[in-house]
């Protein structure tokens, strides 16, 4: 167990170093990426540009620059942006985190409940019209690009029907901190939550239904049903329990990826300044320190989620423990 943990940790570190090196190299391979003139300001003299180059260490060999940057990111914790002079990147990432967490948490609650409901109801009414309708809806949910759905939601709630009772409560786009204005926080996030969750409700509902249907063919369920247990009890106590393992795996991975910044399309469409949007803007501006910070942060969550899922597996599934 301990060695597995240590091995896992070593792997995590390896992957994160790999990613940061990759990002670093990609950056320096890009034309126009030399930030010296941008930092120096418009119409700066050649001397000013040269001075910036020396001040920021752009004249040093790449490996040295990489090590220095990592040191400033992790040891000194004062790595500064290339685009917004004097702006520390770590606080930026820390400030964006609660926004992304709020978005992903809320959406996760929605999609777990929704996914469970869709999967269980569809499996219970297998073959009926309800089942078919739910599965078609789930498939439509899976097929909609999230950014487009978000835009349509914006169109409806911010413009077309904003003045009607339906959406008059919807505040302007943007984020309100939970600590300052809990009700405002909730109101601004409801539509983003829903938009982000639709895709996952579809996926989870479909997967859960398939697993439940499969479970019903297993011997232990047949036994349970033969014993005369109520259908609800069979479903909730027996079938659902075994079917939840892949559900948990998927949830862990999806959650990690989203917290790591993959909710960026939702964040861009709804004007939420979360990690995804921060990364996207940093990439567009070729702001290397910010890119490094956000990408390392993102990969950390993805790798962590992978590891957690592995351990949960060992916990939940006794067969894995023995292996």
């Amino acid at each position: 167990m301990i060695t597995a943990l240590i091995r896992r940790l070593a792997e995590m570190v390896f992957v994160m170093v790999g990613i940061s090196v990759m990002v670093f190299l990609i950056f320096f391979a890009t034309p126009g990426s030399d930030p010296a003139a941008r930092i120096a300001g418009r119409n700066a003299t050649q001397e000013a540009v040269a001075q910036v180059r020396v001040d920021f260490g752009f004249d040093r060999p790449l490996p040295v620059q990489y090590v220095l940057m990592m040191k400033r990111l992790f040891v000194d914790r004062d790595l500064k942006s290339f685009v917004n002079r004097g702006q520390n990147v770590i606080p930026q990432v820390l400030e964006a985190t609660p926004i992304t967490l709020s978005l992903v948490f809320g959406a996760a609650v929605l999609w777990v409940i929704g996914g469970l409901a869709v999967g269980v109801i569809a499996a219970a009414t297998q073959g009926s019209l309800i089942d078919r309708t739910l599965m078609v809806l789930a498939l439509i949910g899976v097929s909609m690009p999230v950014f487009w759905f978000g835009e349509v939601m914006n169109l409806l709630s911010q413009a077309r029907f904003h003045d009607t009772w339906l959406f008059s409560w919807v505040p302007a786009l943007g984020y309100k901190p939970l600590s300052e204005d809990p009700w405002g926080w909730f109101k601004t996030l409801v539509i983003p939550w829903f938009s982000l969750a639709v895709l996952y409700i579809g996926i989870y509902g479909r997967v859960l239904r398939a697993n439940l249907v499969e479970a019903y063919q297993e011997d232990f369920i047949r036994t349970a049903r033969a014993k005369g247990l109520s259908p609800a009890r069979v479903m909730l106590r027996h079938a659902l329990r075994t079917s939840l393992i892949p559900f948990i795996t998927m949830f862990g991975l999806d959650f990690g990826v989203l917290v790591g910044g993959s909710a960026l399309l939702t964040e861009v469409v709804f004007g939420l300044n979360g990690i995804g949007r921060l990364t996207y803007i940093a990439l567009q501006n070729l702001d290397l320190p910010m890119i490094l910070a956000t990408v390392i942060y993102a990969s950390f969550f993805v790798v962590l989620a992978n590891a957690v899922v592995d351990f949960i597996y060992i916990f939940v599934d006794p067969r894995m423990r023995e292996a």
């Binding site: 120096a40 119409n43 003299t45 000013a48 001075q51």
Partner: peptide
């Protein structure tokens, strides 16, 4: 502070060339 305009606006002040260096 290497102001962006140090070399374009204020380079005409006596001694500015030394300051730029």
């Amino acid at each position: 502070v290497a102001s962006p305009t140090a070399g374009t606006f204020y380079n005409g002040i006596v001694g500015a060339d030394a300051c730029l260096k």
